[in-house]
Nucleic acid binder design. Sequence first.
DNA 1: CTGTTAGTAGAACAAGTGTTCGCTTTAAGC
DNA 2: GCTTAAAGCGAACACTTGTTCTACTAACAG
Lengths: 212, 212
Amino acid sequence: MKILTSKQKHILDFIRRFLAKRHYPPTVRDIVSGCQISSTSVADYNLNLLEKMGFIRRHREVSRGIELLNQTPPFGHRLEVPVIGQIAAGEPIPVPTADTWSTTPLETIEVGGELMLGKEGVYALRVKGTSMVDELINDGDLVLMQYTNVVENGETAAVWLKEEKEVTLKKVYTSPGRIRLQPANSNMKPIFVDPENIEVQGKVIAVIRQLA
Amino acid sequence: MKILTSKQKHILDFIRRFLAKRHYPPTVRDIVSGCQISSTSVADYNLNLLEKMGFIRRHREVSRGIELLNQTPPFGHRLEVPVIGQIAAGEPIPVPTADTWSTTPLETIEVGGELMLGKEGVYALRVKGTSMVDELINDGDLVLMQYTNVVENGETAAVWLKEEKEVTLKKVYTSPGRIRLQPANSNMKPIFVDPENIEVQGKVIAVIRQLA
DNA sequence: CTGTTAGTAGAACAAGTGTTCGCTTTAAGC
DNA sequence: GCTTAAAGCGAACACTTGTTCTACTAACAG
């Protein structure tokens, strides 16, 4: 871990807060006045060090050319998660790729911080129905999905049923020759399907419910 | 819905893509070259219109002083939400202010997009206990709270019990002379308290549960 | 004590950048 | 067809901003 002087920590924190508030980076002079630094060359000197240490990237040919790198928060691992459909929509969920993300999804939700650490290929689905209510997933909730086509027994996944032509959200249990799709609702029975008939399209990693 | 000219749409899209890529806003001249506009005064003219229509905010006294407004993705209303405590922690929740946010919260989660439209003063709490499980809020869930000290009957709020010295999450029902704090758990009974004994500290606007 | 390096400091310079000016072209309304 | 408003245009100005220069102080190593 590189050791920062208190002045350098102060500069990084100032840049972070400035960005969060103004939505554009500070200038060297902003840093001078915001960090009580005596001159632009002192600021410049410290910014160069911060760049060498990998905390920022400078674009010296443009004004305000300071980028924060590898920061949490607010620029920790943050994903723009598209809400790309609803469960039980009658067609497979289009897994997000670079191509499909250029289209405008129905809506998006941006999630970052610890929730997204280590996650890639995340998309969201809006739940339709109450089949998972005993797992406290309700109709209308958003579930954040991580793309995968293999899940462990008991994990909750979105699976595409080829013959029925629908996507369903269930706990998946695999045994030879058949898959059990288990609702988390005591009023509903499991579905048994041929392994050839399904395709796992993602597993649930988080649930988000909006109340107000 | 305001009608944008194709040039204006092009400018907005360019600004959005420029921000996503460079992490600083474009200059008027960047827009000129990136949108094949013939001069800086044409760009300036159109930016002024976009500002009047509410798509951007300009800070004309600084370089790169262009902010996108009301945009999703990526710069929709996005808040860095601190997780500042746990419910039933035995002390009042410190409501986030400019001062307290300078301290490092336990963790943070970043949420944006439609979930946060119109919201200010949002913080998060981690739920401890199952008193709200019939409202599908489980032990360990994060609840996003909007600071308020007034709630409508039936809304779920964090309330500080002065005598008991604890914070609890309950549905709040007000009647003359007494407040009913109603768990959403059929195994638990409501609590009745004197209005003088409580302080509403925020209401739940969303629930986030992490599974993986 | 001396020499070297890190850090500081003010001023000036060069380049970047937003705005204004005076004018032209295009579109809309009558 | 004429008038008015909107939009466009190039140039120049004023200001912002990053970097360099020169010099100083403090800390460290020998």
